[in-house]
Amino acid sequence: MLFEGTPQIENAVRAVLRDVLGLSQDRVDALRPETPLFGSLPELDSMAVAGVLTELEDRLAIVIDDDEVSGEMLETFGALTTFASTKALT
């Protein structure tokens, strides 16, 4: 179940990063699971993190509690996708 839904979740995460951070389609297409995000993407400052999380909530119909937000979930594209999948598919 988790596995089946993951590509759609991954696409949603890419689209959110593109729309919220203003990244080009080429840049979001190039994101790999190991691509570092927070601290490496200059567009992703702490204010932008708030926008990314809220937009993920809207698009995936999930609720992210404050205490779930950590440096680890934002460390790489893979970590963020895994977090989003776990929230959306359980």
Partner: peptide, 19 residues
């Protein structure tokens, strides 16, 4: 991309998120 109830959906960027 917004799954909630709507009478119409249009393609576009959520400008309210963009710094």
């Amino acid at each position: 991309g917004d799954p909630r109830t709507a009478d119409a959906r249009l393609d576009g960027t959520p400008m309210w998120r963009r710094a």
